[in-house]
Design a protein around this nucleic acid. Structure first.
Lengths: 242, 242
DNA sequence: CAGTGGTCTAGACCACGGA
DNA sequence: CCGTGGTCTAGACCACTGG
């Protein structure tokens, strides 16, 4: 009722913030149901409609998933439908087989200029670098080089990567409680260098997509920076413009 | 218990369809205001809240633009903010100058296999092909080859393209009453061929982004197919993933 | 000031899922 | 059958714009 601030914020946004904080605090785990709209309305002393509008926005942002008759659930990267939310690569023939992630390497280093800027951490802060291959139907299609802040991923090892049967973000979520919310990709065209050409089994100099991605968790905090090189001989990057 | 209506459509969606039809019929022009929510509610004999939900969805789809205190307006490609809705190319330095479109060529032809499939028209149907250059700060960055169904763009000439100071979609909207609603882009990396390398002033074989776009108007009807070749020496394709 | 979209409420009823 | 989210209504009030 009484909300007086320099920048007016409607009640449903305040509710949204409260739900967000509960999510961030881990009050409900990914994949689990959150309380019903009625319960939340009682908890926050507002009407169901106001809770509803808050949840509506969060569902639109892919933070929550509504299921009529069942409840509202915390979005999870374990959900197979979430895989292609961040991976926009599609085979030119309609083959829908899931890609397979093959870790190549994993080592620790100190953040250089670029990594520190992209990840918003101090220069020289510990980082983890992962190289991995993505295969579609056994064919190598993507080489990724992934930079992670060391303090956010304690104990991440090459073995842990090899043992995991799922997407990287699914691993991050399950192992480190870190949920990837949104990302920004910068795409350019580059020529394959030697090592990349070997990994992707294409001639040196072949044009490749260079996809640089910064991924954010709650509070717009960057927690991953990666550069992927995509072979587009049999795949393309699909983007819907609305 | 057998469910009677597997295709249940809530009232607000029916209202949305009615508003969509009015838009399509040109009852309100791009840039103009549509009637107030109260008026529409009266017209369709529903509550304001129901109209509101219909408009909410259309605003989310960039068909309408809400302006508190003023009204709800039909989205228009004449609006400068609409320019970068479909053009995701950004200079690496933050230069925000608008690109300049330079028509190179414009001729009539008959739809080949690919064009007929992409545009959903018959093989051999008349089409118009436009070649044009996009310059950022005087530098050539994109070469587009654009395929248009001939019957949708009667009287489109090279001179008309040269005379127009604005985006192509702005021209289509103003001259032909055709509104581009959504698009789908397929992105690959290719090597510059001779003629492209000359147009973009890059060495032959330079890796370029190949951006194939199909653009749709109302009713998911495809009305444009284009292939753009983007030089990514000083620009990148920016994509937000939510 | 009047008119617009934006918020909030309370209550009724519908569609769906599962026990 | 109940509990969930989804729809629809009617009315009150707030925030913003422009005359």
């Amino acid at each position: 009722m009484a909300q007086e601030s320099p920048t007016f914020s409607p009640l449903y946004r305040q509710i949204k913030t409260l739900i967000l904080q509960a999510l961030e605090a881990g009050e409900w785990r990914p994949g689990q149901a959150i309380p019903s709209e009625q319960e939340l309305a009682a908890r926050f002393s507002v009407s169901q409609g106001t809770v509803r509008k808050a949840i509506d926005e969060m569902a639109a942002e892919n933070l929550l998933i509504r299921k009529q008759g069942k409840g509202t659930f915390v979005a999870s990267h374990n959900d197979p439908r979430a895989l292609f939310r961040f991976l926009r690569l599609v085979p030119m023939d309609g083959d829908l087989s899931h890609p397979q992630s093959v870790p190549l390497d994993c080592w620790r280093a100190k953040a250089g200029q670029e990594a520190s800027r992209m990840l918003g951490i101090e220069l020289g802060a510990p980082i983890i670098i992962v190289r991995r291959l993505l295969r579609f139907a056994q064919k190598p299609v993507v080489v990724d080089e992934i930079y992670l802040p060391g303090d956010v991923f304690p104990g991440l090892t090459f073995e842990a990567l090899q043992d995991w049967n799922g997407s990287l973000y699914s691993l991050f979520e399950t192992r480190f409680g870190l949920r990837m919310i949104r990302a920004q990709e910068r795409i350019r065209a580059v020529a394959a260098d030697r090592s990349t050409s070997e990994a992707l089994k294409v001639p040196e100099g072949t044009p490749l997509l260079s996809v640089e991605r910064v991924t954010y968790t709650y509070g717009d905090k960057p927690v991953e920076w990666r550069r992927g090189l995509y072979s587009t001989a049999e795949h393309f990057y699909l983007n819907e413009l609305n």
